[in-house]
Amino acid sequence: MAGYILKRLVFIFITLLLASIIIFSITQFLPGDVARIILGQFATDTAIENLREELGLNRALHIQYIDWAGNFVRGDWGNSLTSKLPVRPMVMARLSNSAMLAGMALLIYVPLGIILGVIAALKRDKWPDHLISGISMAFVGLPEFVSGLLLIAFLAIGLQWFPANSSINPDSTFLEALPFLILPAITVSLTGLGYIARMTRSGTIDVLRNDYVRAADLKGLPAWQVLIRHTLRNSLLPTVTVVAMGIGWLMGGLIVTETVYGYPGLGRLLVYAIQRQDLPLIQAGSMIIVAIYSFSNLAADILYGMLNPRIRVGK
């Protein structure tokens, strides 16, 4: 197991390295010149040239990359081009907001998705299954901006249950933020809910087909024991991975949801940065998301290994 984790860490390192190269080089293809973006359209060519020199933009690309990556690792993420403020505290503050939203969403969709998935599997090919499978299929495919705006239209504007806008003060505490979190959390949850429900359903159906479930039945164990000890213990194993991996994948979903609700999270920040062509912000935000993505995948694998005796205990 330890060797396996080490191997995965090495792989994550390589991934982050390659991802940083990809992100760095893609952002070099910017349509405009960075110096011109900073100084505005009307700056003189000399001023731009001076700034380019100052920012080190005239150096060879690989030197610029090494410089950037080195600073990034040391924690110096540069200053935002638009607000001139240091990037790191900004990204970190937004990250914690996103984490709040993601955590809330996880609390909603994981238990619900599992329950619905198990029900669908147990009632396979009967109406509850058709209903749950149909709804979860619909949820999986629905883009967050569609479900988000529809929720706003119905629940916020129509019924006035929740605020339509979640553009809270970025430094709000959890309790202050809570009422503003509910709608965005539901929005993010829908996709996750559909996904978890489908995975749980198929995992449970697979396990139910196994001989050992039949054997457990024929051992005369009470039905709940057969379900929990023999079926769910095995069938939820893949779900665990899906949940853990979903944390990284949530980050992607947050980009759109936060934009819809104007919620001050990392995703909203990234969209803003892209619209403003704020290079350091884009680079830092993307790297953080990639890192979270990679580490949640690692967490998924480790968790799976720990829960699965086949991997935890060797021959």
Partner: peptide, 15 residues
Amino acid sequence: SIPPLLLAMVILFSL
């Protein structure tokens, strides 16, 4: 290992 939407955004931003 990069979320598709993020990668798409960054690429389209440049292209």
